[in-house]
């Protein structure tokens, strides 16, 4: 769907993005992960020409974006930023309908589409006449999403979409995001500095560092990567990341017949130095997919650690 070919960008002789080559597949959720200054936002904004690239080419459906007028390009692409950027002088209805109005859609069409969207983001009809200042942070985010997809874009660009929210709300929004039906078919490019967010939202992750690609692949590939730079990037959180993506089964073992059964899926709490299993008094555990069964105590868990 999107292909970067040798894309470069420098601001005042400082290279921000250097020779990017990658492809984003249709319908996938693609995360650009990196620290601040890594070039991830610049990379995103080059797609809808908010930032003009210096050289190379970016192709959308095999068509170079250079050949598309910037405003018509932007109207085809959904765009969402950290601060949402809802227009404070317009109601929720007007905010959501604005991209449609810019696309010169009929009034009735706009109305029915706005109704459809407000349902999808799980807000009541009565919210339509409210102003953004009368909404909570999470509601503003949802309206922002509705506005971004109002035109039914093939592509949605999101720049740190949930970073401004508190952790609980962020978790909620990420979950809502995954459940909005219409979003599932759209190709999404998400910029984030939060590896948890990337792991949760992305099908594939691209780690950028100093304008270059450190890693590109699925989250499983990321967690299992032996690349030392990726290791550095993940740092001490790595253990936690990996355990979080494991499913631990509690095992009931019949010692006589040597048969066993899965009795529970355990919640796991892991920090960089210790792992604790919660909500069980069953003594045997096993990593899903593994044969070996361990006794549930810290020593065994340490052994588990070595296993991974």
């Amino acid at each position: 769907m999107i292909r970067f070919e040798g894309v470069k960008k420098a601001f005042d002789n400082h290279i921000v993005v250097n020779d990017l080559n990658f492809e984003i597949k249709k319908g996938e959720s693609f995360c650009l992960l990196g620290k601040s200054g890594s070039g991830k936002t610049t990379t995103l904004k080059m797609i809808n020409k908010l930032v003009e690239k210096d050289s190379g080419s970016i192709l959308i459906n095999d068509q170079s974006i250079d050949a598309i007028e910037e405003n018509s390009l932007r109207r085809r692409i959904g765009y969402m930023i950290q601060d949402v950027g809802l227009f404070p002088h317009l109601t929720v209805e007007k905010n959501i309908g604005l991209p449609l109005k810019l696309g010169k859609k009929e009034k009735e069409e706009i109305n029915s589409r706005v109704q459809e969207l407000i349902d999808q983001i799980g807000l009541d009809q009565s919210y339509l006449s409210r102003f953004p200042s009368q909404l909570s942070g999470g509601q503003q985010q949802r309206v922002g999403i509705a506005r971004a997809i109002a035109n039914k874009p093939e592509l949605l660009l999101m720049d740190e979409p949930f970073s401004a929210l508190d952790p609980i709300l962020r978790d909620q929004m990420q979950s809502d995001f995954l459940h909005i039906e219409e979003l599932k078919g759209i190709t999404k490019v998400i910029v984030t500095h939060d590896i948890n967010e990337a792991l949760r939202l992305a099908d594939r992750i691209c780690i950028l560092h100093d304008g270059e690609i450190l890693f590109i692949g699925t989250k499983e590939e990321l967690l299992n990567s032996t690349n030392s730079i990726v290791n550095d990037f993940l740092g001490t959180d790595r253990l936690f990341m990996r355990f979080k993506n494991l499913t631990i089964e509690a095992i009931t073992k019949n010692l006589y017949s040597e048969t066993e059964a899965i009795s529970d899926i355990l919640e796991l709490e892991a920090t960089s130095s210790a792992i604790t299993l919660l909500n069980t008094d069953i003594p045997f555990v096993r990593i899903k997919g593994n044969k070996e069964v361990f006794k549930k105590d810290d020593i065994i868990l340490n052994a588990l650690k070595d296993q991974i």
Binding site: R74, V84, F87, H89, L98
Partner: peptide, 27 residues
């Protein structure tokens, strides 16, 4: 005018005059 709002307006594909009339002047 909040830079985030301006960025949103540009991101929506508003032309300069649309930005001025629909966003900057009202705000």
């Amino acid at each position: 005018v909040d830079p985030a709002i301006k960025e949103a307006a540009i991101g929506l594909g508003m032309t300069k005059s649309q930005q001025l009339i629909q966003v900057e002047l009202p705000l």
